[in-house]
Design a binder for these strands. Structure first.
Length: 220
DNA sequence: ATATCGATTATCT
DNA sequence: GATAATCGATATG
């Protein structure tokens, strides 16, 4: 136990969680994605706190990126991407799923980072209830937050509730924090599930982490 | 008013 | 590994 606690683990909190500053997000989405690995997504309700470590992200650039929702210019749907940095862009996809992004760059310049996978830390029972899954073995934890649609469901993220929310403010109920965890090896591959600009390597994940989505390139 | 298309997941073989 | 399910946003008439 003594040796295990000396090793920084992705599966436990290192220190109290401090919210990230807005300036963190006011940069190129590639840089933001890389540096968000190992940070923590927090859902704070009246009573419950859900926390999970960010282990996989994708960068979506502005109007120069054909795969980005911002590619065709500003619309009512993607307006948050064109707004100030550090806000939640939540969209609905495939008739079933919500996906969470954080806006990047300065106001007026689009850019965002998609949350693709988390490793649960606190509130596993609540996440399991939200996902309607039973945790019978450690590998069932993967059903909670592996994949962008799953993590959103586990955290109760919807467009109505969270789109436009401030991810740098604890008062918003959904925010991103730093507990001092230092991520080790970072891998980059092509983004998943897109057809346009499918060759660009803008997917970032923590090497070897079991919660990373995708079957083949997850642990390289 | 209607048609098309997903930054996905669950459930098969 | 293949595919059905599902519906809001968007484009077009």
């Amino acid at each position: 136990m003594a040796s295990a606690s000396r090793i920084a683990s992705a599966a436990s909190l290192v220190c109290p969680i401090a919210p990230l500053a807005r300036a963190f997000f006011a940069r190129d989405p590639r840089r933001v994605a890389r540096e968000l690995l190992g940070k923590i997504l927090v859902r704070q309700d009246d009573s419950v706190r859900l926390t999970a470590r960010i282990v996989e992200l994708e960068a979506y650039l502005g109007e120069s990126d054909p795969a980005a929702h911002a590619a065709a210019g500003r619309t009512a749907r993607n307006a948050v991407l064109f707004g100030p940095p550090g806000y939640a862009y939540v969209y609905f996809i495939y008739g079933n799923h919500y996906c969470l992004n954080v806006s990047c760059e300065r106001e007026g310049k689009a850019g965002g980072v998609l949350f693709r996978a988390l490793e649960p830390l606190e509130g596993v029972a609540e996440m399991a209830r939200a996902r309607d899954v039973t945790i019978a073995s450690p590998k069932d934890l993967l059903k909670l937050t592996r994949g962008p649609g799953r993590l959103s469901e586990a955290f109760g993220i919807t467009r109505l509730r969270d789109n436009g929310g401030d991810l740098t403010s604890q008062g918003s109920g959904l925010w991103i924090g730093d507990d001092g965890y230092r991520s080790r090896q970072i891998c980059m591959t092509a983004r998943i599930g897109i057809t346009k600009a499918a060759d660009r390597r803008l997917r970032y994940f923590l090497r070897g982490n079991a919660f990373v989505s995708g079957s083949r390139l997850a642990s390289k």
